[in-house]
Design a protein around this nucleic acid. Structure first.
Lengths: 91, 91
DNA sequence: TCTTATACCGGTATTAGTATCACAGGCATG
DNA sequence: CATGCCTGTGATACTAATACCGGTATAAGA
């Protein structure tokens, strides 16, 4: 109605998204990357753990810049990983 | 404190972002592009008019896909347009 | 052992994104 | 002229993102 709750596959996509970011972070600490991106460490943690499955665009953009990765490949990786959505959720 | 309100330049960036999207939409109607992106037309309108200055990442990704534009260039255009932020908001 | 640093987790507070409803203007068709 | 359709808009409702705090666990080092 007012604001469609996140679907299960959206949350799963968020988890994949977070895993991707964590992998990209590598050895660097959360606080360092968060500071580089200009966000709080808690937010970064929530995104990485999938507890914030749909972060804001500019948050992701700053994060990608801090991690030195492309937004397109990031979105593409999630879209590619979520292509089974078409089977699980035909609508 | 708990959720930093959007700064004025963030809102301005949102306006530029929306203007960019509206320009990219061209002659196509809001409802068509919104349907192609899988979001509601009202949401697209709010994003375009800058009333939703920091949309969700996947919303923007779907929109960019529907419009056939790159996320990196989109983010880059906004970042480039907002470089006067450093002067307006030194903090 | 004690301290420190990092990360995870739960709760809380506040703002913002997203969707539905109702409305107005333009334009065509009856 | 009336009616319906389409586009864009304003108001409203509800959920999610962001941030801060305290606590916990693990590992490294003094």
């Amino acid at each position: 109605m007012v604001r469609t709750p996140l679907t299960p596959w959206e949350r799963q996509r968020g988890e994949r998204f977070g895993a991707l970011l964590r992998q990209a972070r590598g050895e660097r600490s959360m606080v360092e990357v968060a500071a580089a991106a200009g966000i709080s460490a808690e937010t970064l943690r929530k995104i990485e753990t999938g507890r914030a499955p749909t972060p804001a665009f500019f948050t992701v953009a700053a994060l990608a810049a801090a991690l030195g990765m492309s937004l397109d490949e990031l979105a593409g990786a999630c879209a590619a990983g979520a292509d089974d959505r078409a089977v699980a959720l035909p609508a």
